[in-house]
Write a protein that binds this DNA or RNA. Structure first.
Lengths: 140, 140
DNA sequence: GTAACTGCAAAATATTTGCATCCTT
DNA sequence: AAGGATGCAAATATTTTGCAGTTAC
């Protein structure tokens, strides 16, 4: 059986409410990362804008979703994989892809972020890699 | 002699105005990347907020600065190196570092972004790599 | 002198907060 | 029943746009 929003909420010990379920289901049904506004549109005014803000923040706090900073000043969100929520600390080690043509942002789960060596004195905690280019569909 | 804001403006064929000079000089004097708000504060109300928006946009268009998306929803800007402005297309190939402790964002010019192999069908144009951790100064 | 740049006002948009009410457990 | 979540209103912050006056060349 397919994973449902409700399952994720149980796992994270969050109370199960309509908005949380719906928003998670939207993420589960989407193959790409979503901006706040995308979610708002997909909810078709079912929930208050403020509720969406708070819900996304809750999901971030619980490690259910991660944020992907894009150059265009728009942060997008995507579901984390299960392994990602280990010990309350994120383990997103995949590359994100941002299509310049259609604007879609997707997680390339199969592409692992390469390690880098930092100059002396810097400690590394997390690496974020966003690749720009043209996606499969937009390729001429 | 040290490079001045005015020199950069000449190079980019932009007219030399007080706000552009001052903002460039702020970048030249700063060792870290700056958010819109940082610049506003450093200008100490000398220029209108709107002018700063427009000036930053102009610099982005001309390839004088590049934007660095950070996870905290705040885009920061930093000067590009000369080699970066080749043929109107950016060539930022260095890693950016974001300190979790003090929030500073800096360009690690000496750390080159490693290449990655994308899945079939994706074309690569640009890679953006932001590393989180603790910077030299904040290291306990 | 002319085109481009700036400041001001205002609109449009985005985000946060407080509080009363409703829902989940 | 109690604590948490939601919706609404409103405060705050951010970004964009239009226009008239000013400045750079």
């Amino acid at each position: 059986m397919k994973k449902q929003g409700a399952d994720i909420l149980k796992q994270s010990a969050l109370s199960i409410t309509a908005s949380r379920k719906d928003i998670l289901d939207i993420f589960l049904a989407s193959s790409s990362a979503l901006a706040h506004q995308d979610i708002e549109l997909k909810c078709s005014d079912k929930f208050d804008r403020v509720t969406i803000y708070r819900t996304l923040q809750t999901f971030l706090d619980k490690g259910i979703i991660h944020s992907i900073p894009t150059t265009e000043n728009a942060v997008k969100y995507a579901l984390c994989k299960d392994e990602c929520i280990v010990s309350g600390h994120h383990h997103d080690n995949h590359v994100h892809f941002l299509c310049d043509a259609c604007g879609i942002t997707i997680c390339l789960e199969e592409v692992v972020v390469p390690q880098v060596k930092l100059p002396k004195g810097y400690s590394l905690k997390d690496i974020n890699m966003v690749v720009n280019g043209t996606c499969k569909k937009c390729k001429a």
